[in-house]
C-alpha cells in the first residue's frame, strides 16, 4: 500500500529536481554576466540538489542509506550558499562590475 505511494512521491521529487538542475545549468550558460549566473548556480545547489536527494530518500526508506543522504543534504544546504556567497564577495572585492542597465527609467 505504502510502496507505490512512496515511489510516486520519489519520482515526482526526482523529476522536479532534474528539471531545476537543467534550468540552473542552462542559466549558467545563458545569463549575461557573472552575478546573474550566480543566481542560476544557487538554484542548482539548493533546490535541484535538494529535490533529487529527497527523491532518493523516499527510495531508500528507513536505513543507513537515508542517514547518509540526510548528511549529504545537510552538507549541501550549508556548503552551496557559502561557496556562492564567498564567490560573490571575492568578485566584488576584486572590483568585478555587475552588468547594469544604463538606460534611464522612463
Amino acid at each position: 500500500m505504502m510502496q507505490p505511494l512512496l515511489d510516486v512521491l520519489s519520482w515526482i521529487c526526482l523529476l522536479g529536481g532534474a528539471i531545476f538542475l537543467l534550468i540552473g545549468a542552462i542559466g549558467v550558460l545563458r545569463f549575461p554576466d557573472f552575478y546573474t549566473r550566480l543566481h542560476a548556480v544557487s538554484v542548482c545547489d539548493t533546490l535541484g540538489a535538494g529535490l533529487v536527494l529527497v527523491g532518493l530518500i523516499f527510495q531508500g526508506g528507513l536505513s543507513l542509506v537515508t542517514v547518509k543522504l540526510l548528511l549529504i543534504f545537510y552538507f549541501m544546504i550549508f556548503t552551496g550558499p557559502t561557496a556562492v556567497h564567498a564567490l560573490a564577495q571575492a568578485a566584488l572585492q576584486s572590483k568585478l562590475k555587475p552588468l547594469v542597465d544604463d538606460h534611464e527609467p522612463r
Binding site: 552538507f75 550549508f78 557559502t82 556567497h85 564567498a86 572585492q93
Partner: peptide, 20 residues
C-alpha cells in the same frame, strides 16, 4: 587579509564543518 569582516560566514561554516 584586508577583509576579515567579510570572512564571517566562512568562519562560522568552517567551525561547523571542521569537526565533522
Amino acid at each position: 587579509g584586508p577583509g576579515i569582516r567579510k570572512l564571517v560566514v566562512l568562519r562560522v561554516i568552517a567551525k561547523l564543518f571542521f569537526p565533522l
